[in-house]
Amino acid sequence: MKRILQDNSGVALIVTILIISLIVSLTLQFNISMRSDLHAAANLRDGIKLGYIAKSGFNCALAVLREDASEGNVDSLLEAWADLKTLSDNSGALFYEGWFQVEVLDHSGRIQINKLVEGSQYNDTQRKLLTRFLKSPEFGLEDEEVENIVNAVKDWIDLDDEVTEGPGYGAESGYYQGLDKPYVCKNAPVEFIEELLLVRGVTKGLFYGTKEKPGIASYLSPYGDDGKININTAESLVLKAFSDRMDDQMVEDMVAHRKDRNNDLSDPNWYKTVPGMGDVTIAEDLLDASSTNFEIVSEGFKGAMAKRVTGMVKRTGSKCDILSWKIE
């Protein structure tokens, strides 16, 4: 028995194995940690690169807008800023790794939602425009729903706390504070178009659209201070909302007229030269042939990674001021 207790060779072997196992475990853990740090550093590096690539696309679009301003004050979808596909397709040649895709969206071709109200009163021309727009069959709204939404948008923007009535009903803070997650009515101009999601009657389906129906978001803008819409760049649903007498065929003919480079689009009343539209009258204070407010969306790519830069730009003459800026 004494001899067995004095034999420690087996214990030494076990201790050695435990130490080796611990060293191997620590080494593997250190290796994993180093690899994680390496990947994180690489992602950070690529993220920075993508940000600069996207910003490069944004600045290229700015340069195109400035150049366009020097060529005249008429804007249409036939101009370089409206089709930057060639620039995007060739952007890979500008970088060692990566490329960008950039597009310019004309907000001057959209309905200026804040011009619906002047002080605490309706701008009647803008009210009729927005009402006709929301009554488009594509949105699938009943007449009563449209009237309620228009009134609710007015109440969101106007300066008072009086609920707008007739026809339909608007909504002030009394309604919004009764919701499960209460908030107050803004009673001020819309700053970002997503604010409309807070307005009674404007659902996510109506705002963003569904597989079957378009959304209203891409036809409205919080930017602009005169209520005028560039007839040369407005979407078909906006064109149709210009007058009660507009029909789908007229809109198609107007779009075809705009695509013909031989046609003069400098006078916004060119629509009267379109066959069948000689008797149609559109309110003069709705029409323009030039654009001021643009949204630039530039996305940088490197392999499977991407980063987007979105900015709103106000162009005055050849000067472009950035109104808002977002990196995603």
Rank of each mutant, 00 (worst) to 15 (best):
D161E: 13
Y175E: 03
N187A: 04
P189C: 01
G170N: 03
A306P: 02
L237H: 06
W81D: 02
F100K: 04
C185K: 04
S36D: 09
P167E: 13
L265E: 02
Q249T: 13
T292Y: 01
A54V: 10
R245N: 15
S33I: 11
A69D: 10
G276K: 05
S21A: 15
T273Q: 09
W81Y: 15
S266K: 15
V117L: 04
I149D: 04
I53E: 00
L130N: 04
V15E: 04
D288W: 00
N8R: 14
Q177S: 11
S173T: 14
E212R: 01
F100E: 01
T273L: 15
A93P: 06
M1D: 12
E145W: 06
P268C: 10
F294W: 11
P182M: 03
A80N: 11
Y271N: 00
I111G: 03
K307G: 02
Q121G: 07
V104M: 11
A12L: 15
N148F: 09
S173N: 08
H257F: 15
E299K: 15
R3Y: 06
G72I: 00
Y169H: 07
D37L: 14
N232G: 05
N232W: 10
M1L: 07
L38Y: 12
N293V: 02
L197C: 03
N230G: 03
S298I: 12
N8Y: 14
L141R: 14
D89S: 07
P189G: 03
T125W: 04
I149G: 02
S290C: 05
K302L: 14
P268I: 13
Q29H: 12
K85V: 09
V117F: 03
D180K: 14
R200E: 10
S218D: 11
N232F: 12
A54L: 08
D106M: 07
A82Q: 03
K55L: 09
T203R: 00
L22A: 13
D260N: 14
E103D: 12
A12G: 09
V153H: 00
D160K: 09
G215H: 12
V313E: 03
A289T: 04
G205T: 07
D75H: 11
D253L: 02
Q249Y: 13
L50K: 08
G109E: 10
W270I: 08
E79P: 09
L141F: 11
V280W: 13
G51A: 06
S108R: 02
L265R: 02
L26W: 06
P222E: 06
T27I: 02
K319M: 09
R315L: 00
L94A: 07
P268D: 01
V163Q: 06
Y223C: 01
A188E: 15
G201N: 03
E165Q: 09
D155Q: 06
A289W: 02
L179M: 14
D37V: 09
E103N: 15
G72M: 01
K307S: 08
S88H: 10
D321A: 06
S243D: 04
A283P: 00
V313N: 01
L94M: 11
K154T: 03
T16V: 05
D225T: 13
E97G: 07
Y208P: 05
